[in-house]
């Protein structure tokens, strides 16, 4: 299996595909079942945000080795409307779509690494990572 993948996200079917690929890649890295579920769920949330807010974007999956760390890095990228107030979007209970308002803070809790860059009118990039426990 390739150690990097790029999945175009345009519909709810792509959300499913992205999380299945993430699970497969995660399994090849050696993650346990619980971590695979965390990874697949995080991908699902980020991919849905793309479909919901930006209509299209990409999910990149990458196996990485840093120092003695091995893990999976996931990047969700879109050129949608962006997030005006990132700090506010990172608070539990905040949402602009009338959804649950749990998306991003929840995803952060599922993962070991979380970075978000967003500019209003330009788009959003969220990078998350899960590391293998050694």
């Amino acid at each position: 299996m390739a150690s990097a993948e790029r999945i175009g996200i345009r519909s709810d079917r792509d959300i499913l595909l992205a999380r299945q690929r993430g699970r497969e890649l995660g399994r090849s890295v050696g993650f346990v079942a619980t971590d695979l579920t965390l990874i697949a769920t995080a991908i699902s949330e980020l991919a849905r945000n793309i479909v919901l807010y930006a209509r299209e974007g990409v999910i990149e999956l990458r196996v990485v080795t840093e120092d003695s760390h091995r893990g999976l890095v996931i990047v969700a990228r879109d050129h949608g409307p962006g997030i005006v107030d990132v700090n506010r979007a990172m608070q539990d209970g905040y949402s602009t779509s009338g959804g649950l308002g749990l998306g991003l803070p929840g995803v952060k809790r599922l993962m070991d690494g979380f970075e978000i860059h967003s500019r209003a009118g330009r788009g959003t990039t969220v990078q998350i990572a899960k590391w293998l426990r050694t």
């Binding site: 619980t34 695979l36 579920t37 769920t41 649950l100 803070p105 929840g106 809790r109 599922l110």
Partner: peptide, 13 residues
């Protein structure tokens, strides 16, 4: 199943 329950709690669902 247990993994789902764990994940849902972490996610805040």
């Amino acid at each position: 199943h247990p993994e789902l329950a764990f994940t849902m709690v972490q996610l805040g669902l």
